[in-house]
Design a protein around this nucleic acid. Structure first.
Lengths: 154, 154
DNA sequence: TACAGCGTTCAGAATATTCTGAACGATCCG
DNA sequence: CGGATCGTTCAGAATATTCTGAACGCTGTA
């Protein structure tokens, strides 16, 4: 790809937009910008180019790609004869994102559910806390369904 | 209700748990703790008692309840002969929470979709950005379905 | 009218989060 | 081997977020 700094203003605008929007999804802005650039390009981008084109430090790239890899949004690839790491979107990044979110919600629900164990049966709080736990399980189920929806239409 | 500070350690543990968990959902910890207490109690709690029992400033209570009201999680009620405001959970707080989240996701998707308008037809980015927009619409649809699931089982 | 108690506001403090950049070990190449 | 470049780490800086608490306007009551 390019060794020069970012040129296309639409790409730049898109990258910043994704950076802002994904902040709300538990990612950092830096990670969102990396993902935005890879989404825009649709092809692998090298570690060094990420730093240059996003005008950020290599340290930020390092932790940003680690976060995105953990969530299954991007993957690291090697290219013969090139010592740099390259990164590209995984085939179903959005479904992976939803799966990750669903898993985290399941854990949150389980955390809340432990409160029920300490409660005597018949305590007044029980039905309300059960409803709260149900909120998490319902949300988890529907996020998985959303992931399946996305995968279904490849 | 009580004018004394919090006593039941299970309530206290629950409140802190909800505070932590809801931080991930775009609420502040203080708002989560308020909601946790109201969820535990199942009955209205006065403004003053919230500050006392949560051991926090009245300013925090003021902004916390405002946030929770905006999202439809709690509502403010008046009691004859009492100048204080009282607060209680709305009848379907979790469904309301999901509706709010769905709305916000719809806005995020629309924000991303504007990028498509600036793109010439046939641009290489188009299908990928469309997939991204579809991610938001799918998620929005399934969150609304989750809200209906919750309401369905009243 | 004076007063007491109510909820809100907002500037500044406290805290949490994110980013930077230098140091480092590893690897490749000449 | 020596030097260049790679990605990672982490302490400190920069930034963003949240909380506190005093000041304020409002509203009942005496």
């Amino acid at each position: 790809m390019k060794d020069t700094a970012e040129l296309d203003p639409r790409c730049s605008a898109f990258v910043e937009k994704v950076g802002l929007v994904t902040q709300a999804d538990g990612l950092t802005r830096a990670a969102g910008r990396i993902f935005g650039l890879l989404l825009w390009e649709g092809a692998a981008v090298s570690f060094g180019d990420l730093a240059i084109r996003l005008e950020t430090s290599r340290g930020s790239i390092s932790s940003g790609v680690r976060l995105l890899e953990e969530r299954g949004l991007i993957r690291r690839i090697a290219r013969a004869g090139d010592r740099q790491d390259w990164f590209e979107m995984t085939p179903e990044p959005f479904a992976a994102l939803l799966d990750g979110a669903a898993t985290r919600l399941g854990r949150a629900g389980a955390e809340i559910a432990t409160t029920l164990d300490d409660l005597p049966s018949g305590a007044g709080q029980t039905p309300r806390i059960q409803a709260y736990v149900e909120f998490y399980t319902t949300l988890e189920r529907n996020l998985k369904r959303a992931a399946d929806d996305l995968r279904g239409r490849h």
